[in-house]
């Protein structure tokens, strides 16, 4: 019992009990393994690889076929909006379901960990990693490429704001994956419903717009549509998608915590 004397008992309020240790564990899965640089490399190849190809390699091979930098910027943001969303779905599909199925969630919950802390730790650690690796790092590399190319001048603040919209869009799918993970026990429904939301929201938006014309402005995909003009130096055309997506993401988070509190292990 000797070692205990110099250790202090962790004293956290019940609602956030275990949060810091869970965040540390989740962070270590990203930053304590090779996952961070493997993901960084993958997303570099996916998002910036196309920019390298169109902005540098194609003009070097055939100058006449070279696209304009503004077109490449459109491709960059297009890829960002679509492919990184699928990436989040894949990365997050087993965040909750995997732990429930393997039994590690039951082990964690037999410790002084609140259900809310478990979900919040998943959100914070994965959110920070995804935003850092996919949004900030790839955005920075992309910005540097356009800056060095010099054909178009991108102002840093609007470009960062455009990345912020992309980041918010990804957070919507991250919280959606979390809430689906609390309701289902298989990866299929988690990724399937997420894809259905991504693909179906345009169709759904158009259908509902026949009755409520303002409805499509609530859809998260509007964030992706607004990102490119913003990066090109325009202004934010509407705050509605930003507010709506933030509120929906918060609702998903609260719903995930509510549902996970009712989970039996």
């Amino acid at each position: 019992m000797s070692s205990i004397s110099s250790l202090q008992i962790v004293n956290e309020s019940p609602w956030r009990s275990g949060f810091m240790n869970m965040v540390r564990k989740e962070n270590s899965l990203w930053w304590g393994t090779r996952k961070w640089w493997v993901q960084s490399l993958i997303w570099f190849l996916i998002l910036n690889g196309i920019v390298v190809l169109l902005l540098w390699i194609v003009p070097a091979v055939d100058k006449e076929e070279a696209p304009r930098a503004s077109e490449v910027l459109g491709v960059f943001f297009g890829f960002f909006g679509a492919l990184s969303t699928f990436g989040v779905m894949i990365l997050m599909q087993s965040a909750i379901v995997g732990e429930k199925n393997s039994g590690t969630a039951a082990w964690i919950m037999s410790n002084p960990v609140s259900r809310g802390a478990f979900i919040l730790a998943k959100l914070i650690a994965n959110g920070i990693a995804i935003l850092t690796i996919i949004v900030v790092l790839q955005g920075l590399i992309g910005y540097m490429q356009f800056f060095l190319h010099g054909e178009i001048v991108l102002r840093p603040i609007p470009f960062m704001a455009a990345l912020g919209l992309q980041g918010l869009h990804l957070m919507f799918y991250l919280t959606l994956a979390l809430v689906l993970g609390t309701f289902f026990n298989g990866r299929g429904p988690v990724i399937g419903i997420s894809i259905a939301v991504l693909i179906g929201q345009d169709l759904l938006g158009q259908l509902i717009a026949m009755k409520f014309p303002w409805f499509p402005t609530l859809m998260p995909m509007r964030l992706v549509d607004m990102a490119l003009p913003l990066a090109q130096g325009g202004t934010l055309s509407s705050y509605t998608p930003v507010i709506a997506t933030t509120l929906m993401s918060l609702s998903f988070l609260l719903l995930a915590i509510w549902r996970f509190r009712r989970e039996e292990f």
């Binding site: 205990i4 008992i9 962790v10 275990g18």
Partner: peptide, 20 residues
């Protein structure tokens, strides 16, 4: 990982407890 749900303090003390 489990000990950190309960204890905070000097790393050596924690590692000693784990070793014990």
């Amino acid at each position: 990982f489990r000990a950190r749900f309960f204890y905070t303090g000097p790393k050596d003390a924690l590692e000693n407890r784990i070793a014990e």
